[in-house]
Design a protein around this nucleic acid. Structure first.
Lengths: 219, 219
DNA sequence: GTCTATACTTTGATAGAC
DNA sequence: GTCTATCAAAGTATAGAC
């Protein structure tokens, strides 16, 4: 199983208790958000017009303002989903690791969870990746903080492995972290569900990150 | 030596024979291009206005049209510099490898050249990375082709190493290639010349790509 | 909830003076 | 080469009807 359910109304209408009914507004709001994520990721922040988003869901531009107060609020909602989606998924997966697991096991699990949630929240994570730098400064600050916190989680993962003497002694943790995340995140740009199963990609990446590309008696 | 000269008028006014004088137009044209690269990379394609670029070099918006016929032509010039700058630098560095070099030597040299030229052409490569997807379709097509050709060069590098039996047998070449380029290119987003010397970063990445992060008797 | 109508701003680009 | 002046098109957002 490499693909989980994509996010739906339930995930998107945050904090709605399961007893409450899902209203027409919830549905529209979610359709708008989905369309916005895709269009923001394709055309950038300034290149995305309220008219284009509206047209995509069969509404007039003015109607979007019933669901979101402004374009800024719309991109904020998209960025939230992208960054939190991945971050929560990876935290959860690592937390669910059996007690005796090695650092390497935990890192492999993080790689797998990162990759699958990246793809699961495809348009949202793509939008985060591509427009974070183009967004009004006060919006950007908050999400840069979230992203950095996630980065620190990876440092902790690597540090744990180092403490258990699993790492080569000459590895620079922060450089390794950025390299790993750079390589994984790039998958967003090229991975297509029709191709290789995502589980296989994750396995290959684990191998690459763990052991490199060269045969052992190489150096 | 980790930083080469940044590109100047000579590089930018393409195909101008060294006997010809550099005109006032050449200077303005280059200043416009430099500013455009930075602003495109910061604000995206649609978010960059001709007025903003002009203001940045102390001109009126209308004056830009003396140097570039349109916004499209301007972004094309920026993308050209970004993609060709890196591609040419890496080709040249690998071509200059001594005859007996191993596949690993050549890959290390490519990593170093990729990283240094990435940083040398900073704003241009950043612009390519960030706005390629936002640009009018016919502009994008050409540059996607260039980028893909560069990717194939890396496949050839890896294939050569495989033929010499230097690679672990279970490495998927195309996956390894995208992972490596993803990790290297991400450096664009965080590398600051004030920090660690770029040569050291390149060395770390070579180690990471070659041998991974885990100590040898780990698996 | 979604519409039509519209106010106001900013955009890429051109014309023609200097 | 660069300027001022200007245009038509497109942008965000609001008001008020249904």
């Amino acid at each position: 199983m490499s693909h989980t359910e994509p996010p739906g109304v339930r995930d998107v209408t945050r904090a709605k208790r399961s007893s409450e009914r899902i209203t027409k507004a919830d549905i529209s709001r979610e359709r708008v958000l989905t369309a916005a994520a895709r269009i923001f990721s394709e055309r950038g922040y300034a290149g995305t017009t309220m008219r284009a988003v509206a047209k995509n869901v069969g509404l007039q531009a003015a109607s979007l303002y019933y669901h979101y107060r402004s374009k800024e609020e719309l991109i904020e909602a998209v960025l939230d989903m992208g960054i939190n989606g991945v971050s929560h998924a990876v935290h959860a997966a690592v937390a669910a690791t059996p007690p005796g697991s090695s650092g390497r096991d935990r890192i492999d699990i993080a790689i797998h969870a990162h990759l699958t949630s990246l793809v699961r929240f495809g348009d949202y994570t793509l939008a985060s990746r591509r427009v974070l730098g183009q967004v009004p400064a006060h919006v950007r600050r908050k999400h840069v903080r979230l992203r950095d916190a996630y980065g620190e989680f990876w440092i902790a993962l690597l540090e744990a492995a180092r403490s258990a003497d699993e790492l080569r002694s000459d590895v620079d943790l922060r450089l390794a972290r950025t390299f790993i995340l750079g390589g994984l995140n790039f998958a967003l740009e090229w991975y297509k569900p029709q191709g290789k199963a995502l589980d296989d990609v994750a396995r290959q990446f684990s191998l690459l990150i763990g052991d490199g590309i060269f045969a052992v008696p190489s150096k």
